[in-house]
Design a binder for these strands. Sequence first.
DNA 1: AATTATACTTACCTTTTTGTTAGTATTGGC
DNA 2: GCCAATACTAACAAAAAGGTAAGTATAATT
Lengths: 113, 113
Amino acid sequence: MTDKKIQITARCPIRTTMELLGGKWKLLIIQQLRTGDKRSHELKELLPDISEKMLFQELKSLLESGLISKKTESKKPPKVVYSITIIGEKTYPLLKSMRDFALEYEAFIDHNI
Amino acid sequence: MTDKKIQITARCPIRTTMELLGGKWKLLIIQQLRTGDKRSHELKELLPDISEKMLFQELKSLLESGLISKKTESKKPPKVVYSITIIGEKTYPLLKSMRDFALEYEAFIDHNI
DNA sequence: AATTATACTTACCTTTTTGTTAGTATTGGC
DNA sequence: GCCAATACTAACAAAAAGGTAAGTATAATT
């Protein structure tokens, strides 16, 4: 009886990660920021089917968990730029694992047709 | 105009992986099967807060995508055992990345208190 | 202070996911 | 054919996630 149950329900790293990065958009936003800082409308162009609500909601969530940061420059029209933080960069191996898995999975499926 | 949009919306590996493994339970089920084949009620004990419906629904989904398999032995009471498949094992690096990320994240947070 | 351009929020609705409960299916031994 | 024991499903409800559309906020320039 089992620290196992406690491990799983209480503070399970898998669940922690899902809470921080789960949902349809957070990882896709991070993936885009990875190639360089972006403004909100740039992200919208790169993720054409995200709604404004979700974009800002998820940016806010990522800001609150510290995975991204934003810098506001008081320019002629205000200019806000989002960037990955150091902790945010720790998601890169996860992104790579997900990409690797998808490719291996698809190769396997194609092979067995 | 950008293969980028197509890449993201059409067949993006991140989305593929989320479709196969997303949701609250699939990865936790796989994680448990990793330590050895399990019967449904064993999984229920290891994941005490999963509902029967979700357990079987997610097992079904994982079976359909080929990530797990099941073997039915016609024993006195019928005995069904679930196992990871070869493709299912390809999720292990992803599980590890998620664990690693959660630990790094928590260490970072604790450090900055 | 009015304008313009970006950034963000809010109220409401739809869809998807997850949970509850009670039920059905199958099997070997009696 | 009935029993006990496991495996699974179906009907409905609740909650969470996501989408739409319209609105507010801000800030430098004029």
